[in-house]
């Protein structure tokens, strides 16, 4: 019954035999041990499991691992460049964009997508762009600030 998949996760290729019904989030967490991607609702409503699949943000609780065959996946563990944090990580830290931290990996990955689509987002665009991700701790205000700060940092770096 098992099927073979070949998935590059954070730059490392993995060939695995998996159950066809295995979800990408469980593949990442249980097969590869990358537990930075969290499961908050298993119904694609909270966004905690957001990862990048070929560069686009997806909710890994509603993608089968088999659907990721041949794809490149980036998780929160793969975002920093060695010890150098990604500007989004740095900005979430600086702006106190997290409290309990559970939604944070998904929130950062969703913000990553947002800044790709809108490198210079307004507050309204940030709030709209993060609608797929729930946070119960921060009231979102510092998350919005963090994304705006990251946009400034990334804009300055690329200009």
């Amino acid at each position: 019954m098992n099927t073979s998949v070949s998935i590059a996760v954070n730059g490392t290729p993995h060939d695995s035999r998996i159950e066809p019904r295995l979800l990408l989030v469980h593949y990442l967490r249980d097969v590869l041990g990358l537990t930075g991607t969290h499961v908050g609702c298993e119904t694609s409503l909270c966004g905690s499991c957001t990862v990048l699949l070929d560069g686009r943000a997806v909710k890994a609780c509603t993608v089968l691992a088999a659907q990721a065959d041949g794809a490149e996946v980036t998780t929160i563990e793969g975002l920093a460049d060695g010890d150098e944090l990604h500007p989004l990580q740095e900005a979430f830290w600086e702006e106190h964009g997290l409290q309990c931290g559970f939604c944070t990996p998904g929130m950062i990955m969703a913000a990553h997508q947002l800044l790709e689509d809108h490198p210079d987002p307004s507050e309204a665009e940030i709030r709209h762009g993060l609608e797929g991700n729930l946070c119960r701790c921060t009231g979102y205000q510092n998350i919005v600030r963090a994304v705006r700060r990251a946009a400034d940092a990334m804009g300055a770096a690329s200009s």
Binding site: G33, G36, I76, L79, W93, L98, G101, P105
Partner: peptide
Amino acid sequence: DPRLITGASTYTDDLK
């Protein structure tokens, strides 16, 4: 925060 923003923290369900 450094452990939380890099996915290096351990919540109960992360335990194996």
